[in-house]
Design a protein around this nucleic acid. Structure first.
Length: 344
DNA sequence: TAGCCGTGGAG
DNA sequence: TCTCCAAGGCT
């Protein structure tokens, strides 16, 4: 296990040797510039941010310029960068600083964090980079490094996991050279301790890394648990006549677009009278499960999506030997083929 | 607390 | 093509 000071020393030494030092927002102590970069970098990769950062700073060289700008000007410069509430909050915060702080950027982490769009980690970064305060950060990079190094399991979106990560982050953050340390932790996460194929041979922390030692790198940090896919339930209406079955061509977009399928209605709709239930099944898509209840019907309703005008119909002689060849020609979803097979 | 916000890169 | 998620914060 690590001694905090040993951890810090290794991390800082890494930064001095290998850390990134020439990003556009580095080499300045201007809290406005650092703040701007930190906001733009939220959930956004460095290479994406750089051109926006340059043009934004060119147009609004100081926070007072930004405060006096119109909303349209600000949004225009942000357009394409995404997460537009960041831009609205940025503008609002600039006005706050101009008015309540007389244009002087607040200097404590606590005060910085009151600005809209600035959370705990962003406030910590600004306080450390601009004012050399011993404040911790916990962005995605730091989370990944800490989770692997200490074997912190579970998804960081879970409050207990997040609490543990913050605890580690606070414990490990040094009171001196904090800016270098924080930058180093982000560099480590971004360059060495990457999500996939981390370069452990380059890592100053590999000696005691829990994940490396236990071969659980791919499992850390824990992923967001997948929620159960939503289920949609439909009837497939199977209308047989003279040894033929009616198929409809599906709309060009959506599931199975353009393929031939049994006429389909949602199970929230009224099932046709005299329908005979065949065995149901579930077909799994990436984003939802489709539960299908095939119904043998004696006639087809002609309402709603069943309007024959809106869909081509096709009468397939499913009992003939050439069913498989035929189905290959016209494009049937696999479940439809299976139902056809069970009928013959 | 879980959903939401945006766009782009990587695998 | 599709998933996963990136220098998170807000509601």
């Amino acid at each position: 296990m690590w001694q905090a000071t040993e951890f810090q020393n290794k991390v800082i030494a890494y930064y001095r040797q290998h850390g990134r030092k020439h990003l556009p927002w580095q080499g300045t102590k201007d809290p406005y510039q650092i703040w701007l970069s930190e906001i733009m970098l939220q959930q956004t990769q460095v290479t994406t941010v750089i051109p926006y950062y340059e043009s934004f700073l060119n147009k609004f060289p100081t926070i007072n310029h930004l405060a006096k700008a119109s909303s349209d000007e600000v949004m225009h410069l942000w357009s394409g960068l995404g997460y537009y509430s960041r831009a609205r909050n940025l503008h609002k915060a600039a006005k706050m600083v101009a008015e309540t702080y007389d244009g002087k950027f607040p200097q404590t982490q606590e005060a910085i964090e009151t600005l809209p769009g600035v959370g705990r980690s962003t406030a910590g970064a600004i306080a450390a980079f601009a004012f050399d305060q011993p404040s911790a950060i916990l962005d995605g990079n730091v989370k990944r490094v800490l989770a692997r190094c200490y074997g912190i399991e579970g998804w960081a979106g879970k409050s207990s996991v997040l609490k543990t990560l913050w605890q580690r982050a606070e414990e490990n953050t040094p009171n001196h050279h904090t800016a270098e340390y924080n930058q180093a932790m982000m560099d480590l996460g971004a360059v060495v301790c990457t999500r996939s194929k981390p370069k452990c041979e380059q890592c100053p922390l590999s000696e005691h890394c829990y994940a490396l030692k236990h071969d659980t790198i791919t499992q850390l940090p824990g992923k967001k648990p997948k929620k159960a896919r939503p289920k949609r339930s439909v009837y497939w209406l199977i209308y047989l006549e003279n040894q033929q079955v009616v198929l409809h061509k599906r709309p060009p977009s959506g599931i199975w677009g353009g393929l031939w399928c049994f006429p389909e209605i949602d199970q929230s709709e009224q099932a046709p009278a005299d329908a005979q239930k065949l065995s149901s099944f579930v077909h799994k898509f990436s984003h939802y499960d489709l539960e299908v209840q095939p119904l043998l019907v004696k006639k087809l309703p002609n309402t709603g999506i069943m309007e024959p005008n809106e869909f081509d119909s096709f009468a397939l002689n499913f009992l003939q030997k050439n069913t498989q060849q035929k189905t290959a020609e016209i494009g049937l979803p696999t479940p439809v083929s299976k139902v056809l097979d069970s009928l013959s």
